[in-house]
Structures are given as C-alpha cells and as structure tokens.
Design a protein around this nucleic acid. Structure first.
Length: 373
RNA sequence: UGGGGUGUAGCCAAGCGGUAAGGCACGGGACUUUGACUCCCGCACUCGUAGGUUCAAAUCCUGCCACCCCAG
C-alpha cells in the first residue's frame, strides 16, 4: 500500500476539501504535518435553509476557519450551488419523479467534489486535491485504483464508485489508512475545535432533513391507495415518490391481518398504488437477480461482454460484501447474488469489489423478486 | 318491536374480583455522508355511560347509550 506521501512532491500545493468535520480537518492536518503546502477550501453547494430556518453550512464554515487557523493553513470558500443544482439535484428529482430512489451523493462526488472542485483546484495551480473520505488509493502499473478505507466500519468507497481512474489519480485520501477512532484521537491530541463534533449525515451539503417534507417542497404529490399484494386497499399514501422499497415506517397501517408490520415491496406508477406486504420475511422483499445500468468501471472492466465474473458487491452503503456473479451485455449488468438480498431498489447503486478494490458499479434498474434463483 | 351478542389507547387484542399483557401504528433517540432497514425508549391514573354490591370491580348486579346478528 502506498502512503499518501508517495504520490506527491513536498513543494506541491495540495487543496483540501474541508467540510468542517473531523475527517477533513485531520486530513488537512496530516498533510500539513508531513510538510506539504496545504490550502483548505470550503464548499458551499446548497443555499436553502432547513425546516427550522437553520443554515448548518454557516457553522461548518466557521469551523473550517477555526481549524485552518489552528493548523496554520490558508483557507477559502467557494460556491458550487449552481453546479450542484444542475448536475446533481435536477437528476435527483427526475429520478424520484420516475418512481426510483436515487443516491445523490454518488453523483455529487463525480460531478462536484471530483470535478467542479478538482478543476477549481487545478486552476489555483494544484496538481492534487485531498478529501476526508475513508478510502485509499493504490497505484498499480501507473494506474490509480480505489481501495476501501482501513476502517471496515467507515469505508466510504461505496460513494466514490462513479469516479474514473483519472479523477482518483488526482486525489489523495489522508485518513483512508487510519481508523475513525484514530482520527478522533489525533483531533483531540492537537486540540482541534471539531474533535468531538458529531459526524454529519443526510444528503451531502444538504444535511439531515425530514426527508418526506424535504421532497414535498420540490415534488408535487399525488395521493393514492396503498394496496396489499392481493389488491386489497389497506391504506392511503401521500405520493409514490415519498416512499421507497423496503420501507416500513410512515405507512400508517396498523392492526390488520396477523398484526405484523407492513413493508413497501413495489410501486405501481400506472395506477398510482403503493404495494405493500405484511411481515419482514415476505418473499417479495427479497431477490437474487437484479439488473443495473449506467455501468461505471473505474479502470478497465474485469471481464469481456458476455462473460461471467465472480466478485463481491454492496447493494447499499455499509452492507457486508455479498458474493455475486456478474455479467453485462448491451450496457446492462446482471448480478446474481449467492444470498437473498433485501429490498434491492431501482435507482440505488450496486457497487462492485474484488477484495479491497472497488471496481466500479451501476444503477439498479430492475429486480427479479422472490428468493428462488 | 322481540331474542342474542359486543363495547379496553388510532387499529387489533389479553384480562373473567385484587389494583390495565402483547402486537401494529405513532412519537422520540441511537446507528448512518443517499433513501431505507435495524436497535432502544415512550405511548390508557383508565376499561361505552350512570349507579349499585364489595375492604377492593375492566372484571359481579341494574338502568341507559352505541354497534352487530337472528327473528319479524
């Protein structure tokens, strides 16, 4: 494994994308400590305030300034709100309108952090950017590869699978080879003001929201029926796009049938019906075979069109690696998993791995329900 | 109008004289750079209503009300 120091020259300027959190702060500190010419840049990509009228990016910017003062590096702020809206959020909304469940953060990384931001850094004269992602880079025969973070509990390669080799080659990940615990420890030892700051969650740059309320401000609703698999009307929904497959809460169905919980297993856009099944073990919640499109290989594909390839995959962030057999033809990837997968959802990302290396991934487009292969 | 049955939280539902199980839903929290899932906590000073018996009643008795079923 290369340490991040092997990628760069000491006199080279490195621009660090700083969020105001501990990870990117420690990333900047580690580069600075190693003797590099480090510049911190804070991105503001979302203008809207949250439902409480709070703009969390204000506090984050304040934190970035405090951290940069503490580790003694220059800092700036840039605004990619327009790019974020055009390249990420618009697609995000369109996916929801089409009945799918998109993952905006994988797009954000491809379009904003490792494109708009990268280009901006290059204009400043930097040859590399650095982020606080828990991932590693390994160069093999002159090609950069995306490797999982050392900390198995914090690995974020899932969110970066859409990057191409050229983008990864210009990136440095200073905290990918240490654990979250070590990051906190370092932050604490050097007295960073954000050493105990809670990790941020929610859509990147937008933050934690009541997701249904958030979507309702951007997507018109069309109320309809919630139907059981047998076609019985068991409730009412506020708009198909406000629900996702596998979802349990928010359905308001209680006291029916055998008393167990109900889960979303499908959406019928034509009839504007949300299809639900009772019981967490419903066959319709599971599948072995799924298709995915918009295939991305970080480097070259591991097999030719039509051939089978055995590797592992994650159907969602933080899921343990799942054994799969994949193949692709005419731009459509087919993945057959050894174990049944729960609530595989169109619009979400299927990310592929060979051991610790992220190969790439694709957007789930169709799922063959049921536990029989 | 006779005869029978049932009325316990938003829903389903235990309890059958000793001081209100459980599930679902819902709310809050934890987890989490997507959406979800999961986990934890909370959730009827009160049992249709008005009286009565009793040391003690959701549980027994009586009236009333509501709904359901069978007669007509």
């Amino acid at each position: 494994m290369n340490s991040f120091e092997s990628f760069i020259n000491k006199d080279e300027m490195i621009v660090v994308g700083m969020s105001g959190g501990v990870d990117s702060s420690v990333a900047a500190y580690r580069l600075k400590k190693a003797g590099y010419n480090v510049v911190g840049i804070f991105m503001k990509n979302w203008e809207e305030k949250d439902e409480n009228g709070v703009c969390t990016s204000e506090q984050d910017w304040t934190d970035v300034q405090a951290v940069c003062e503490a580790i003694d590096i220059p800092y700036y702020a840039v605004n990619f709100a327009q790019e974020y809206w055009d390249k990420v959020f618009t697609l995000f909304l369109n996916e929801y309108k089409a009945g799918r469940t998109p993952n905006p953060d994988v797009l954000c990384n491809r379009e904003i952090k490792f494109k708009a931001f990268l280009e901006y850094a290059e204009q400043l004269g930097a040859k590399h950017i650095a982020t606080g992602h828990f991932v590693q880079r390994r160069d093999i025969a002159g090609k950069a590869h995306l490797i999982k973070g050392i900390d198995p509990n914090k690995d974020q390669s899932y969110f970066l699978y859409m990057l191409k080799e050229a983008q990864i080659a210009k990136a440095i990940f200073p905290v990918g080879n240490i654990t979250k615990q070590e990051v906190r420890k370092i932050a604490n030892e050097i007295g960073l003001p954000v050493s105990t700051k809670k990790d941020s969650t929610g859509v990147c740059f937008i933050g934690e929201r009541n997701f249904k309320n958030f979507l309702q401000t951007y997507l018109p609703s069309q109320k309809g029926n919630i139907c059981s698999v047998d076609g019985e009307i068991v409730g009412h929904h506020d708009g198909l796009m406000y629900y996702t497959l596998g979802q349990r809460r928010g359905l308001g169905i209680g006291g029916r049938g055998d008393g167990r919980s109900w889960f979303v297993v499908d959406k019928n856009l034509k009839n504007n019906e949300l299809i639900v099944a009772q019981g967490e073990d419903s066959d319709l919640l599971y599948s072995h075979v799924s298709n995915a499109v918009d295939i991305t290989w970080i480097n070259e594909a591991p097999m030719k069109e039509g051939e089978n390839y055995h590797c592992t995959a994650k159907y969602r962030y933080r899921q343990a690696d799942q054994e799969v057999c994949i193949s692709y033809s005419n731009g459509v990837l087919t993945a057959i998993s050894k174990e049944p997968q729960r609530a595989v959802t169109p619009g979400q990302s299927l990310v592929l791995y060979k051991d610790d290396m992220c190969l790439g991934g694709a957007i789930i487009s169709a799922v063959q329900k049921g536990t029989h292969k």
